Amino acid sequence: MDGAVIAPGTKFSLNEKVGERTRERGFVAAPAIVGGELEDQLGGGISQFSTTLFNSAWFAGLPILEHQPHSKYISRYPPGREATLDWGNIDQVIRNDTDAPVVIRVATTGTSVTVALYGSTGNRKVVSETGPRSASGADGGFRIRVTRTVYDDGRKTGTNTLRWTYTGLD
Rank of each mutant, 00 (worst) to 15 (best):
M1N: 06
A4E: 10
V5A: 03
I6A: 13
A7H: 10
A7V: 10
G9S: 10
G9W: 11
T10S: 14
T10N: 13
K11A: 14
F12P: 09
N15S: 10
E16R: 12
E20V: 04
T22P: 05
R25N: 12
R25G: 02
F27L: 12
F27Y: 15
V28W: 09
V28N: 15
V28H: 14
V28D: 13
A32K: 07
V34E: 06
L42W: 10
G43D: 00
G44H: 03
G45N: 06
I46F: 08
I46G: 03
I46M: 15
S50P: 02
S50Y: 00
F54Y: 15
S56V: 01
A57E: 02
A57P: 01
F59W: 11
P63H: 13
P63E: 08
L65A: 01
L65N: 02
L65C: 04
H67Q: 09
H67I: 00
Q68C: 03
P69E: 04
H70T: 01
S71L: 05
I74R: 02
P78L: 04
P79C: 07
G80L: 01
R81M: 05
E82I: 03
A83I: 00
D86M: 11
D86G: 11
N96C: 06
P101S: 12
I104E: 05
V106Q: 15
T108Y: 12
T109N: 11
T109H: 05
T109F: 07
G110I: 04
T111R: 10
V113E: 02
T114D: 11
A116F: 03
G122E: 07
G122M: 01
V127F: 07
S128G: 11
E129P: 05
R133A: 07
R133T: 08
S134T: 15
A135E: 14
G137N: 02
D139H: 15
D139R: 14
G140K: 08
G141L: 10
G141D: 14
G141M: 13
F142P: 07
I144E: 08
V146K: 08
T147S: 10
T147A: 06
R148P: 09
T149I: 12
Y151R: 06
D152V: 05
D152I: 07
K156Y: 01
G158M: 09
T159N: 01
N160I: 11
N160K: 10
L162Q: 12
T165W: 01
G168E: 00
G168Q: 04
L169C: 04
D170N: 09
